[in-house]
Design a protein around this nucleic acid. Structure first.
Length: 596
RNA sequence: GCCCUUGUAGCUCAGUCGGUAGAGCGCGUCCUUGGUAAGGACGAGGUCACCGGUUCAAACCCGGUCAAGGGCUCCA
């Protein structure tokens, strides 16, 4: 499981000419920013300033450390530049002239960037006012066209995105066509923050993080535990329908196991230190489940008649992610994957891939997560970090791409994003702040069976090599839960709701009747509570609404007389009265149907 | 890991010029018996993240540590 990269790919001149108006405004605004910064700090060294999905940024290197207090000053200067209504003037220089220019004004990053431009392309510049910038364009005609902008935040960014290079100071900002759109966007951002799973998780008592327990180690609280259990039950029932066999393996494994699997050298940087039992024995907290499952497969001799063998486990794994990367439930150090490994014959690969993809799609559909992006993650042809026969890689990459196309899954190819042992079909979903996370994944692997010398006996009575499919429809319970909290804004559908029904007697006189209904709900297997506080009904309702309780059964004098309950649904208000038995049976149907 | 920001009650946050803490919500007790989003009274609750320094005196100033947040890099 992993996040996505945000690198800016170099665009051709043709692609740039296609840039839409908003991107032109943002790109031009980045130039306005650089103009302003240079006016205030003339010795700032500039790198690049492209538009992004939500705005733009510009990278600087200078002695002065930007602080958020500088924003006011910089924005004021930017407003002046806009007011001056400078034209953006295009010009070209020869490679030699361009280099001499940047040498003369001492702009080392710009100088180096010139070498990125292919020999076949022109070296182009745009000038607004006193600021001349190496730039492929395009721009709006004048700085006055930049009508609404705001600087957002500061960040450090490594030059050329490489950790070994110096860190530059990045200023992020955004710009829109007009002030109204800017205001709307800012308000939408505020709204989105209310959905943040970390905020809702705390408010609703779903999970917590304790620095005493450790960074990135999620503690599922009782209510979160209910949601997780329901998700797990759903997945378990799917697995059984689809012929998976549950297995269980321990949380640690001998370091020899990971050396054999090849994980060890790749994983070294992001694992907890090994556990030394004595001089001889060394163990690793398991960073993945595959080697354990492989040993289960390898424990017995298999005939082709038994295949495919599908070993499934909700397996806890531990990864020592960099501290700065940790985030709520979406990026953690201890996680539980809804993992399984399918061992099959080469002929069965396609059918098995189809079924795993089908399960992943069903999972997303069941939760109403329809806004996802699929990606076929391929190896980087220029890297040597991948193990195994290139012919197998080609076959595996081709199969995944073809299955995705056959199943009408819109997808793009992502070179360099494959696992070291094989290509993947990944399903990505965005969180409330627009960051993209990988959830479900299907990975095709010809290499681990090779490394572990796995076999099955074929119809020809000779040993053959099985193929492995790694797959996790949720990805991990932690990340999936984080995304799900935001997707539902904490308002879980009935089948997942930690508290499905709360019985609210109007006065103490109805407490006995309320208790009776509460018992019936419990007997029916419905997660119910009862509010026996001395509050007025309006206060009880408010308390249930803020707790996002799915159904409220309100009972007073009238309900006792007619053996009924008044039903109120969270966020939907009064739904009228129903007989007790009818109310309960409707709930049971909706719960077992997992309706959204 | 690196850069920037932040850390006061369970939560959200005040706290002036340095004189050892406040509010609202929540929680507890009591009063109120009320028909679809807040009835009232009283009360409990804090080593001001932690460690050190400056000072007669530190929530406040300085240094360090830890954690959280926003990015970058990494990511099986």
């Amino acid at each position: 499981m992993e996040g996505a990269k945000n690198e800016i790919k170099r665009k051709s001149i043709e692609e740039r000419q296609q840039m839409d108006e908003l991107s032109r405004i943002r790109h031009s605004c980045a130039h306005v920013l650089a103009t302003a910064v240079l006016r205030i700090w003339p010795d700032a060294k500039l790198d690049i300033g492209p538009p992004t999905d939500e705005g733009f940024y510009y990278d600087f290197d200078l002695e002065h450390r930007f602080t958020p207090e500088d924003f006011e000053r910089i924005e004021a200067e930017m407003k002046k530049v806009v007011k001056e209504n400078q034209t953006f003037d295009y010009s070209e220089k020869s490679r030699k002239e361009a280099k001499e220019y940047y040498q003369s004004i001492n702009q080392p990053f710009k100088l180096e960037r010139i070498d990125d431009i292919p020999e076949s392309e022109k070296i182009t510049f745009y000038k607004n006012g006193e600021f001349l910038d190496l730039c492929a364009g395009p721009h709006v005609p004048r700085t006055g066209n930049v009508k609404a902008f705001k600087l957002l935040r500061l960040a450090a960014a490594y030059y050329r995105g490489n950790e070994k290079n110096p860190q530059l100071q990045r200023i992020y900002g955004t710009a829109f066509k007009n002030k109204t759109q800017l205001k709307e966007w800012l308000e939408a951002q505020e709204e989105a923050k209310k959905r943040d799973h970390r905020k809702i998780g705390r408010e609703q008592g779903l999970f917590t993080l304790s620095s005493t327990v450790g960074q990135g180690l999620v503690l599922w609280m009782p209510k979160g535990g209910i949601v997780r259990t329901e998700l797990q039950n759903f997945m378990q029932s799917e697995l059984l329908k689809r012929g998976y066999s549950p297995v269980f393996t321990p949380h640690i494994g001998s370091i020899e196991l990971y050396k054999k699997s090849g994980h060890f050298p790749y994983y070294k940087d992001s694992q907890y230190p090994t556990i030394k039992a004595d001089e001889e024995e060394e163990y690793l907290l398991k960073p993945m489940n595959c080697p354990h499952h492989i040993e289960i497969y390898a424990a017995e001799k298999h005939s082709y008649r038994e295949l495919p063998i599908r070993l499934a486990e909700f397996g806890a794994v531990y990864r020592y992610e960099q501290s700065g990367e940790l985030s709520g439930m979406t990026r953690v150090r201890g996680l539980t994957q809804d993992d399984a490994h399918v061992f099959c014959t080469p002929e069965q690969v396609e059918t098995e891939i189809r079924d795993t993809v089908d399960l992943t799609l069903k999972t997303l559909r069941t939760l109403g997560l329809n806004d996802y992006r699929a990606q076929v993650s391929l190896r980087d042809p220029n890297s040597d970090k991948y193990t195994g026969d290139p012919a197998n890689w080609d076959a595996a990459e081709e199969t995944l791409g073809r299955v995705a196309s056959d199943m009408n899954i819109a997808h793009e190819k992502a070179p360099g994003e494959a696992a070291f042992y094989g290509p993947k079909l990944d399903f990505m979903v965005k969180d409330c702040l627009g960051r993209e996370w990988q959830l479900g994944t299907v990975q095709l692997d010809y290499n681990l069976p090779e490394r572990f010398n796995l076999q099955y006996i074929g119809p020809d009575n000779t040993p053959h090599r099985p193929v492995m499919i790694h797959r996790a429809p949720f990805g991990s319970f932690e990340r999936f839960m984080g995304i799900l909290i935001e997707h539902f804004a904490g308002n879980f559908p009935l089948w997942l709701a930690p508290e499905q029904v709360r019985v609210l007697p109007i006065t103490d006189l109805q407490n006995d009747y309320a208790q009776k209904i509460y018992s019936e709900l419990k007997v029916a297997g419905i997660r119910a509570n009862i509010d026996l506080s001395g509050e007025k009904i309006a206060a009880k309702i408010r308390s249930a609404e803020t707790a996002k309780v799915h159904h409220m059964f309100i009972v007073g004098k009238k309900e006792i007389e007619s053996e009924s309950v008044s039903i109120r649904v969270h966020g939907k208000g009064d739904q009228g009265a129903k007989s007790v038995s009818e109310a309960i049976s409707t709930l049971k149907i909706d719960i077992s149907g997992r309706i959204l």
